[in-house]
Amino acid sequence: MSLIAFSNVKYYRGELTTFPSPVTRDTAVRYVHVKGASTKEGAKANRKEAEAVVTEVVRRMKTSTH
């Protein structure tokens, strides 16, 4: 058993999702291209990307069954 699989069972109740995930359910980590997001080296803020993350977090919280 791999360390990740062990940790998933013992500490995360089998709910740990790693990247890239073979699982296609909505909770899996995935790459999402954010159009207009800056990719400048050394940039400390990326408003478009931050807005996309917040939108996704809010969506997940609203649809969460926990």
Rank of each mutant, 00 (worst) to 15 (best):
M1A: 05
M1Y: 01
M1S: 11
S2C: 06
S2A: 06
L3G: 04
I4E: 07
A5T: 09
A5F: 03
F6C: 05
F6G: 07
F6H: 09
F6Y: 12
S7I: 02
S7V: 07
N8Q: 05
N8V: 01
N8S: 15
N8L: 00
N8G: 07
V9D: 05
V9H: 10
K10H: 10
Y11D: 07
Y11H: 14
Y12L: 07
Y12N: 09
Y12K: 03
R13W: 08
R13V: 01
E15N: 14
E15K: 12
L16Q: 09
T17P: 00
T17I: 09
T17L: 14
T17D: 08
T18F: 02
T18D: 11
F19N: 09
F19Y: 15
F19S: 11
P20S: 15
P20R: 12
S21Y: 05
P22I: 11
P22Q: 10
V23A: 15
T24L: 12
T24Q: 15
T24Y: 03
R25S: 14
R25F: 05
D26A: 13
T27Y: 03
T27G: 07
A28E: 07
A28D: 07
A28T: 13
A28Y: 06
A28K: 08
V29W: 07
V29N: 10
R30Y: 01
Y31E: 13
Y31H: 09
V32I: 12
H33V: 11
H33N: 14
V34K: 03
K35M: 06
G36I: 05
G36W: 04
G36P: 14
G36T: 04
A37Q: 05
T39I: 07
T39K: 11
K40V: 08
K40Y: 08
K40G: 09
K40A: 15
E41W: 04
E41N: 12
E41C: 06
E41G: 15
G42I: 11
G42Y: 05
G42S: 11
G42A: 13
A43S: 15
K44L: 11
K44I: 05
K44T: 13
A45I: 04
A45F: 05
R47C: 10
R47G: 11
R47P: 07
K48T: 08
K48L: 14
K48S: 09
K48Q: 11
E49K: 13
E49G: 04
E49S: 09
A50G: 12
E51Y: 01
E51M: 06
E51W: 01
V54F: 05
V54P: 00
T55M: 01
E56M: 03
V57F: 01
V58M: 02
V58A: 05
R59C: 01
R60I: 00
R60A: 03
R60C: 07
M61D: 04
M61V: 15
M61A: 14
M61Y: 09
M61E: 10
K62P: 00
K62I: 08
K62D: 03
T63D: 10
T63Y: 01
T63L: 11
T63P: 00
T63K: 10
S64V: 06
S64E: 00
S64H: 07
T65A: 09
T65K: 15
H66S: 12
